Simulated scan of single mutants.
Amino acid sequence: MNEPVRVALSRLTLSNFRNHETLALGCEARLVALVGANGVGKTNLLEAVSLLSPGRGLRRAQLDDMVRKGATGGFAVSAVLEGGCGEARIGVGHAPGEAGRRIRIDGEDARSADMLLDHLRVLWLLPAMDGLFTGAAGDRRRFLDRLVLAVDPGHGRRVADLEKTLRARNRLLDDGGSSAFLDAVEAQLAPLAVAVSYARREAVALLGERIATQAQLGLPFPQAGIRLTGPFEGMAGDLDATDLEDAYRERLVEGRFRDRAAGRTLEGPHRSDLAVTHLAKDMPAALASTGEQKALLIGLILAHADLTTAVSGMTPVLLMDEVAAHLDPGRREALFARLSALACQVFMTGTDAALFESLPEGGTIIALSEAGGAEPRPFAG
């Protein structure tokens, strides 16, 4: 088996992004701890890195909201990346009034954001995700689809096409569209639904295998059980793709009156859920303690980083906001050791440099200041 390509940012430059007017950050280390008081822009730096991947970034914010307050133009984020093709330069920018963001790779305009996945995969873990297991099913679907995208670059486009086609069907139902028009839209909808569901199911199965393998390492993060649930998944059963498409089209036809009354399509993979359990306690993750839920989520992300490396052939860039603050010293040390073993580049944030005193050799702490500075601190490791 070939060794995975080690991918890492060596330099990150921001212009008029959030609170940063200009910032140039050298970040060659594998484990990078960004330290500073609240409000200096630590999470903003993580968000900037997240824009180097398809999607809306880790905050799912509007692009205009990312422009520094008082700036007359837009923002720009650029990075120098070391990967399998040597050095690559990636730039992302946005100007007020533009419909989307501009993406340039090695000086050339990118045709789509999916081209970013040829160079790097970006994963993240945020405090806002702490309520993932107790929150809405839609949040878990978005979480799952980000996981799938990291191992299957075509998944984002399939999900977008599915959502677009669902909106078209819902409009037809609302407008009293004819059966012929509905037949045509549902004929497009069924294969998209099956493709999205199959991609999710495969990713969940592969991730489950990685979680089981990781459990043998004795990490202080409980093993999670994961599976897809929902009427569509129950209907899928052991059907092959063609039979499932036919079965779903029949359900759509049968459900037109009900869906018209509801104002939306009530059945499909857009209603599926990711069920997570604490295996050792044989209980839903939603019923676990707050600390156990955090530990389960960390374990999931670590296993997913491992899976991403195995499937894509490149190590991901991992963003972990305030991950160390609520872990005891033993779990912090175990987390840092596992991140080092995974060999992916990791950006972490914290208000206290002491949280990162157990970083392995090769880690670096960068102190951010309110003046917009970024100063590497000596670190023995």
Rank of each mutant, 00 (worst) to 15 (best):
308 T>K: 06
322 E>V: 00
279 L>S: 13
147 L>T: 11
279 L>N: 06
356 F>D: 06
26 G>L: 12
32 V>Q: 01
116 L>M: 06
73 G>K: 00
330 G>E: 11
260 R>C: 04
104 R>M: 11
303 A>H: 03
179 S>P: 05
291 G>S: 08
274 L>I: 04
335 L>H: 06
373 G>Y: 03
53 S>G: 12
134 T>Y: 02
381 G>R: 07
1 M>A: 11
45 L>Y: 04
58 L>E: 15
254 E>C: 12
201 R>I: 08
140 R>Y: 06
24 A>V: 14
176 G>I: 07
214 Q>D: 05
221 F>H: 02
158 R>C: 10
251 R>H: 12
58 L>A: 13
79 A>C: 08
158 R>F: 09
70 G>N: 09
93 G>V: 05
60 R>A: 14
219 L>V: 02
329 P>D: 10
312 S>P: 08
130 D>G: 04
343 A>N: 12
189 L>A: 08
72 T>S: 14
290 T>E: 14
176 G>T: 12
249 R>Y: 07
260 R>N: 08
273 D>Q: 03
371 A>W: 07
294 K>Q: 13
310 A>T: 05
220 P>V: 05
220 P>E: 10
91 G>L: 13
51 L>K: 00
166 L>Q: 02
208 G>Q: 08
103 I>D: 01
6 R>C: 11
187 A>G: 09
107 G>S: 05
359 L>V: 01
1 M>G: 15
106 D>P: 11
335 L>V: 00
345 Q>H: 02
328 D>Q: 09
140 R>M: 05
120 L>S: 02
195 A>F: 09
360 P>D: 01
362 G>T: 03
207 L>S: 10
178 S>L: 07
120 L>P: 02
360 P>V: 01
135 G>S: 14
263 G>F: 09
270 H>V: 04
304 H>A: 08
311 V>D: 02
74 G>Q: 02
368 L>T: 01
69 K>R: 15
23 L>H: 00
343 A>P: 13
213 T>P: 03
337 A>R: 15
74 G>S: 06
235 M>I: 10
119 H>Y: 14
124 W>A: 05
340 S>D: 15
264 R>V: 09
11 R>Y: 10
378 P>D: 12
33 A>C: 13
86 G>W: 03
238 D>T: 14
364 T>Y: 05
136 A>W: 06
267 E>H: 12
269 P>E: 07
151 V>R: 09
41 G>L: 08
254 E>L: 15
25 L>A: 02
27 C>H: 00
235 M>N: 06
360 P>W: 00
278 H>V: 10
155 H>A: 10
97 G>R: 00
368 L>C: 11
375 E>D: 09
261 A>D: 14
59 R>H: 11
85 C>Y: 10
294 K>G: 04
174 D>W: 12
113 A>M: 06
273 D>Y: 07
235 M>E: 13
272 S>M: 13
